[in-house]
């Protein structure tokens, strides 16, 4: 299977590649539009800060390509947030695939939300064989609101979208590549979709 991890800047995307390697899949890092268009599955990871990440996408015209992809796409962390309508981080317009906004956690809680938190209301093939209340590892200061496309919820400061789906587009706020066995199950589910 031809899995491409979109490589558009600095950050820890090596770990995603290693996670697929543990599943026996040689995922490739690429920023080539041609390679991304011809992939079976596309991973859209998150790196750094939203407005800078969006600038890097625009520079390589990936902002125009990503929303048109027909194969299964999995946005991870900031990748998921950039697929939303808008994010408060750097007041950045998103790619608009997911019909929710991204906001900053309030100062009533420690920010970033860092560590292992449970996910609930699991509603997609992406989350098959993952029990309710499983722990996933997250680290983020902004969250996607709950909407019609929410397929998993989590609670910190308030209830937010732990995962979203719109047709062939999937997004997870947590890091499946760092979430032990349940995270590996999610990546395997994504390959099986």
């Amino acid at each position: 299977m031809n899995v491409i991890i979109i490589d558009y800047g600095a950050g820890n995307i090596q770990s995603i590649q290693f996670a697929f390697q543990r599943l026996g899949i040689n995922a490739k890092l690429s920023n080539s539009i041609e390679e991304i268009l011809s992939a079976d599955k596309v991973i859209f990871p998150g790196v750094g800060e939203a407005s800078q990440a969006m600038q890097m996408l625009k520079k390589s015209k990936l902002d125009l390509i990503i929303p048109t992809l027909k194969q299964d796409v999995l946005g991870i962390c900031l990748g998921m947030q950039l697929l939303c309508k808008h994010t408060e981080e750097g007041n950045t317009k998103g790619l608009g695939v997911f019909d929710v906004d991204v906001k900053r956690f309030s100062s009533a809680v420690k920010v970033p939300h860092m560590g292992w938190n449970t996910i609930q209301n699991l509603q997609s093939g992406l989350l098959k064989n993952i029990p309710e209340e499983s722990y996933m590892y997250s680290v983020h200061s902004y969250y996607a609101s709950i909407g019609k496309q929410t397929i998993a919820r989590s609670q910190y400061d308030l209830e937010f979208s732990a995962a979203l789906q719109s047709d062939n587009f999937y997004g997870v706020q947590f890091h499946p590549e760092k979430s032990s066995k349940d995270g590996a199950q999610l990546l395997q589910n994504f390959l099986n979709l």
């Binding site: 090596q14 390697q21 590549e177 066995k181």
Partner: peptide, 11 residues
């Protein structure tokens, strides 16, 4: 670091 990242699935 690479070796650890390759083999473990926690942060």
């Amino acid at each position: 670091v690479r070796n650890v990242a390759e083999h473990i699935d926690i942060p």
